[in-house]
Amino acid sequence: MFEARLAQGSIFAKVIEGLRELVTEATWECSGNGITLQAMDSSHVALVSLVLRSDGFETYRCDRNMSLGISLTSMSKVLKMMGKDDTLTIRVNDDSDAIVLSMESQNQEEFAEYELRLMDLDSEHLGIPDTDYSCVVKMPSTKFSRICRDMAILGDSVTICSTKDGVKFGAKGDVGQGSIRLNQSTNVDKEEDAVSIELREAVALTFAVRYLNMFCKAAPLSNQVNLSMSEDTPLMCEFKVGDMGHIRFYLAPKIED
């Protein structure tokens, strides 16, 4: 049997909203350590890797390792029925072909239960090595979302240039061109508003802005986003999920013909 309970069910709903534009179905790997998921988009340009550690759940029980094929589209629809302060329990009974989502209102007066059929999915996994990136930009996730949205107006691609002083996002297309430069924060009251850059080497990489905008669907999970970059290496875009884990998106760069 598998059972995991989250007092703040809305966190799980935000995780699903963060994934479901990039991948519509995925296999969840459940073990005693927690829940992990790795899935690529259909064109093999982007990948998402999710980790939710067991100690981040209010209660967590996983008697044996399980691979659960789940339609994220359907799960998202079910989770929309959850109240914003509801407690969420995810359960898979032994020898069951369904996942049960139970939602309980804070005053314990309302209790809803939905079942979703599990799917048999073929999943391809990539081995992603630990990487020492040349540059890690940390910035407010709302700012990153706004910049990606704005850049998409100008063109299909965004070039991210990072130096020790700042990071510049630039796009050009048929309508014109533009760029936004952020300097490293020197003095901020709140850490979550800061832009900080750890840099070993300056980098300039170009990415399809459409994918960056899909990654930004996970921005409500975290005040800050980390962008880890090295030349000729996929971008890693990370949002923390409270102190229980993270969503990491990987995106292959655009390269010269």
Binding site: M40, S43, H44, V45, A46, L47, E124, H125, L126, G127, I128, P129, S157, T206, A208, T233, P234, Y250, A252, P253, K254, I255, E256, D257
Partner: peptide
């Protein structure tokens, strides 16, 4: 510019 694929950088496991 052309779009590269993740499989150009990472191997299947």
């Amino acid at each position: 510019m052309i779009q590269s694929a993740l499989t150009d950088y990472y191997t299947k496991r």
